[in-house]
């Protein structure tokens, strides 16, 4: 039987990889995908803890997080499309102006 700590460590590793992606990449889409990875790492924690405590609340929250992530994906990608129309690039390092 796999222990709870193994799931938690795996999810911590995935979360840190996602955080490194957010901090080091400049392509907006890869930034977005790293954020999704971090959300998924947290989801894994919820599911593992739900199983090891025998309570279903964790599943409910993962369900809600998934819905929010899907909403975030739709909005985020629409923003990227708009940004690309404006700047011909989605390199976030070049986006330092809020006005134009």
């Amino acid at each position: 039987m796999v222990g709870l700590h193994e799931y938690l460590i795996l999810s911590g590793v995935l979360f840190v990889i996602g955080a490194v992606g957010v901090l080091t990449r400049s392509n907006g889409l890869i930034l977005f995908m790293s954020l999704e990875l971090m959300l998924n790492a947290v989801n894994l924690t919820f599911v593992a803890l739900a199983r090891y405590t025998g309570q279903l609340e964790g599943h409910v929250f993962v369900f809600l997080v998934t819905a929010v992530a899907a909403a975030e994906a739709a909005i985020g990608l629409a923003i990227f499309v708009s940004l690309f129309r404006l700047h011909r690039s989605i390199n976030v390092d070049q986006m330092n102006a809020m006005g134009d």
């Binding site: 039987m1 222990g3 709870l4 700590h5 938690l8 460590i9 911590g12 199983r51 090891y52 025998g54």
Partner: peptide
């Protein structure tokens, strides 16, 4: 912290 969280699945 996490390696202290050893538990058996009920």
């Amino acid at each position: 912290v996490l390696s202290g969280a050893r538990a058996e699945a009920p």
